[in-house]
Amino acid sequence: MKAIAFGQYYPTGSILHRLDPRAKIIIALLYVICSFICKNVLGFALLLISAIALILISRIPLGTVLRSIRPVLLIMLFTMIINIFLTRGDTVLVEWRFVHIYAEGIYNAVFMMIRIFVLIIGMSMLMTYTTTPIMLTDAIERLLAPLKVLHVPVHEFAMMMTIALRFIPTLVEETEKIMAAQKARGADFTSGSLISRAKALIPILVPLFASAFRRAEELATAMECRCYHGGEGRTRMTALRYRAGDFVWLLGALLFCAFAVGCNYFGIGYTL
């Protein structure tokens, strides 16, 4: 149960943790774009080096980082195999009946692997591991603020997201408590047929929903008691402020992007 405890936030107090979350979202976006722009050996080498640098800077233990890759390992393997066998090129390496493996296929497979690896590392190092979910929604609200002109209810969306995130740990805890209480009465969730196992969930789901509705009502009342009326004219307890360091990182990401585009345009870097 503890495994689904929300989020992967791993506090180490590194530079990455202290970056402005808005800057981190933008940098992460730029990084994703870069990983798609890069087409040659030089570009991929740079991507790989920057991903490793991010891990080192975040000071998060390597084991924890690698655990975030495990769920996509299968996808990585699958794309690799597809790329190896289905890419057609000029340099034939293996030819056996209907199987043809070309050098281009091998290169494509390796690049694809690097791309997926870098995407995951970039996103998790810049966002999930180093930014609390609440900070993320806060940053998203600020970044989307211009849309208010088009009457998009940005604040309301952000508030809903914040509340939803805020209550995930509460509901997980509640679920654990209810499960414990029903286990104390001899509930058995792990044995029996599929139907009897599904039925065993009723004693958990009914109290869980009852308490979720009760909490929602209490929260709405509490918010109204404190005169909550939406985002207009609302100030924040922790205002986000860009600092010099944020701009340095942003500049770095922009330069990386520019470099990747330049490489493609001028054909620099070792291409096949």
């Binding site: 408590k177 209810i178 209480a181 009465r185 009723i202 004693p203 009914v206 109290p207 009852a210 308490s211």
Partner: peptide, 10 residues
Amino acid sequence: VMQYPEYQLF
């Protein structure tokens, strides 16, 4: 009997 056991009624 856990704390606030009334929340386990279903």
